[in-house]
Structures are given as structure tokens and as C-alpha cells.
Design a binder for these strands. Structure first.
Lengths: 233, 233
DNA sequence: ATGAGCAATATTTTCGAAAATAGGCAAAAA
DNA sequence: TTTTTGCCTATTTTCGAAAATATTGCTCAT
């Protein structure tokens, strides 16, 4: 095989380190880099074409996001997946997302409503176009992420939003993991539409209940379908 | 003046980078490094005696904790302090700390109770010894931090605990800032004792109410005494 | 005066070599 | 056989030089 990717290239971020963090994050979330896999510098240098220190900076970023764990003097590895971690993550996500969506509904203006509606529309379009398997579809994943982000974007809490985004990534890794072992994706279209309606109808209590249930159900399904590959808590 | 600190030394962490992050964090939280102050590599290299890349790794860590902000290609600076940020931070802290303390009370065992009690005892001892000005006292700060940490330690939520710790640091910076401008520290001893009693009495509702009010009142006082040095939100 | 263009300087970002550290293997001692 | 000790190798961690990028200050045309 040809030893590809000798030279680093910038795609996303402005600096090479943030760019590599972006690419690494993607590979971890999509499970191309498997849980527990050890991240050796020599190997990373080969596949990303960057030097020790640049890689080290990128890894440091991902440690803070909980996608990579560092054992000092003993290198880095992809964060493990466990049932315990999934439960912990789910609890944290519900707590934060419920708070954010409630405040978003209180504070959201017309632009916010428009954004929520158009994000849902885009999501629906993609699902129509590929009704069978949108779960593995990168475009659907992006639209899905953006819809959920739109819902909470008017909350006015940068701190919690940042935490939320990092938890979303961690959760997406579990979703991808379970998708590998599930016969067909759960149909979330109805849930998304109901969420949108509760949000723009300014029905905060209902929106909070819906999002909590949405996150919990997804998590339960992950636990059900992926329990074989997840280390017991 | 003698140009001190040419050679780096390890005090806390196992690696130099984590050690420097530790020291930098401390300098930022205690406002020896002032909000908005730009963190130039040459200057840092001089005072910490480490190389570019090691410093860069330490700064990356602090960016994730919200104590440093990075503008790509334009360096790092100490995170600004604003009223808006203080409100955001306070909201996030109350949301998370209330959840953690409730679950800690549900799950805490005998060791947890003992730990809470002994942490409070240590705190009280220090306050007795220096009744006038324990606010600037590093030992008191450490005991204070440990008491509050003990309360939530049985929650069993590593994710939220990690976020909590990072928010605690950010809040401590604001507390230190206001202490500079306040005639005498507010007496929190009674509040701490009440918290302990509610916790080991397994009165979750009361403990949650107390911690929320404790955080909110502290924040209000910071806003009151430090508003002069805090940029308007 | 004013602003655009350009050179000079300051600063950040990236690199690969060198130092430090951990883990394993083999030989010697118990 | 089992344990200990001391190399040797694999790997991480740190360094300072070099490249890339931003900023400042100057010149010149308008």
C-alpha cells in the first residue's frame, strides 16, 4: 500500500493543531479510531503528517473534551466506552440540555424560530431523499447536529453551550457504535417535529420533557444494541 | 533585578507541561496575572523557564478550562472578566452543583459523611486561628475548596464533577478579585455548617436550596464589590 | 493631511533532533 | 524455579531553531 498523507494539510481550523484536532475528533467519533486504541506518536505522525508537538497539542484538546485519555509518561489512547460512562454522559446531557432549551424558549426571537424551522426542514429533506439509511449519512449527521444546536442557541449561556457541544460529540460516538449493530435506525422524525413545535409554540415544559425523553430513549437504545461491544460498567 | 526562574522545576504534576498549567492556573485565579493580560511566549518562557511547545500545551489546557482565551495566530491572553460572564458562570454552577449535591446525598456512604464533617472541621479550625482575614489565606482557600468538593464527591458523576471543578476555579478568580475591594470578608461559617448538617441529615431539598443560595449570594457580592474593575456585560 | 503599499520587526506556529522515562529481556543470585 | 538487578529498546516529553504569520512604521502618491 502507498504510505499516504505524508504532508499535513489544513482543512478546517486556522492553525494546523486545531485542524488536526478536528480530524482526530472526527475519526474518534465515527469509530475509525476504536475505543481504547492507543495513540502512538509515530503512527499519528505518519497518518497526519505533523510533528510531535503539534500532535501533542491536538491531543491535549481532545483530552479536555473527554474523547481521549492521557496517562502521563505513558501516552494517549482513545477514551474507552463503558455502560457506566454512557449513563453518566446521558445524565449530564439531560440536565444541561433541559436547562438550555427552557431558557432558549424564554429568550428566543424571530430569527431563532426561523432557524429552528429551517434546520428541521433541511433534516426532513435529507430523510426523504434517503429514507432507508440516513443514519450513516454524514450530511444527515451534520443536519441533525445543527437542528439540536439551533434549539438551544438562544439560551445565552456560552459556558453551558460549550459543555453541551462536547457532550454531544461524546454521545455521537456511542450512537455510531450502536448503529453498527442495529438492524435499522429508529425513526426520530416525529420526535424532532414535536420538539420544533413545542419550541416555537413556547411550550417550555413540553419541550423539556420531549428532549429529556429523546436523549434517554436514544441512550437506552444504544445500551441495548451496543452492549456487546461496550465494556460492562 | 535578578532574572529569576531560568530553569523549570516540577512541583505538582508529573510532566512539566501539566506542572506549568498548574502554576499558570494558580497565577490567573489569584489575579497575579490580570484579566485580559496578553500571554506572550517570550515573557512566559522567561518566568517559567520552559520552551515554546511546553508552554503551548499548558495554555491549551487552560483554554479548555475557560481561564485563557486563544485568538488563532494572535496568541493567548488571560480570559476577560465581565458581569455577563459572572452571571453565566453562576447560573451554570448552580445548575450543576445542585444536581451533584442531591445525588451525593442519595448515594453517600459513611466514609462520605466522615469526610464532609472533617473537612468542615478543618475549615472551622483555620477560621478560628485567623478570625480576621482568612479570605486571602491560601490554606483557608484550599480547605474551603475541599469542603465544597467533599459535599459533591459521592454523586458518582465524573463528567459533571470535572465541569464543576473547572467552574469552581473560574469562580474563585472572581472571588479573589472582589476580595481586593471589600472591607471585610462575608462570614460564611454559618452557611457552611448548615450545609454540612443538611447533607449528613440527608435533607436533600434543604441542601440544594442552601447551596444555590450560597453560590448566588457570593456572586451577588462579587458583582457589588468588584463592579468597578469588571467590564460591563 | 491621508491612505495605500511595502519593508522591517515582533510574535506565533511548526518542526525534527535530543533528553528523559517506562517496559521488557536476559543474566546472575537466592 | 523464583526473584532481583542491570542493560537495551520503544516511546514519550522537552527543547531551541526555523518557518509562517501578524503588526508596526515608513515612504510615496494623491
Amino acid at each position: 500500500m502507498t504510505t499516504t498523507a505524508l504532508k499535513a494539510r489544513k482543512e478546517f481550523g486556522k492553525t494546523l493543531a486545531s485542524d488536526i484536532a478536528h480530524r482526530l475528533r472526527n475519526e474518534i467519533v465515527t469509530c475509525q479510531l476504536k475505543p481504547n486504541e492507543s495513540l502512538k506518536f509515530d503512527a499519528l505522525r505518519l497518518s497526519f503528517g505533523a510533528s510531535f508537538t503539534t500532535l501533542r497539542e491536538a491531543l491535549t484538546l481532545l483530552v479536555a473534551e473527554g474523547l481521549v485519555v492521557a496517562e502521563e509518561q505513558r501516552g494517549y489512547k482513545v477514551a474507552p466506552v463503558t455502560l457506566e460512562d454512557l449513563h453518566d454522559l446521558t445524565h449530564a446531557r439531560i440536565l444541561i440540555e433541559v436547562d438550555l432549551i427552557r431558557r432558549s424558549i424564554e429568550r428566543g426571537d424571530d430569527d431563532w424560530e426561523i432557524r429552528v424551522i429551517s434546520c428541521l426542514h433541511r433534516l426532513a429533506k435529507i430523510e426523504e431523499r434517503a429514507p432507508e439509511d440516513y443514519a450513516g449519512n454524514a450530511e444527515w449527521k451534520s443536519a441533525h447536529r445543527q437542528f439540536h444546536e439551533a434549539l438551544v442557541l438562544a439560551s445565552g449561556s456560552p459556558t453551558l453551550l460549550a459543555v453541551r457541544n462536547s457532550l454531544f460529540d461524546r454521545a455521537e460516538r456511542y450512537r455510531n457504535l450502536s448503529a453498527l449493530y442495529r438492524p435499522r435506525p429508529r425513526d426520530k422524525a416525529g420526535e424532532h417535529r414535536a420538539l420544533m413545535q413545542a419550541a416555537i409554540g413556547r411550550n417550555a415544559d413540553q419541550a423539556c420533557a420531549l428532549i429529556a425523553s429523546h436523549i434517554q430513549t436514544t441512550s437506552d437504545n444504544v445500551a441495548k444494541y451496543a452492549s456487546g461491544v461496550i465494556n460492562a460498567g
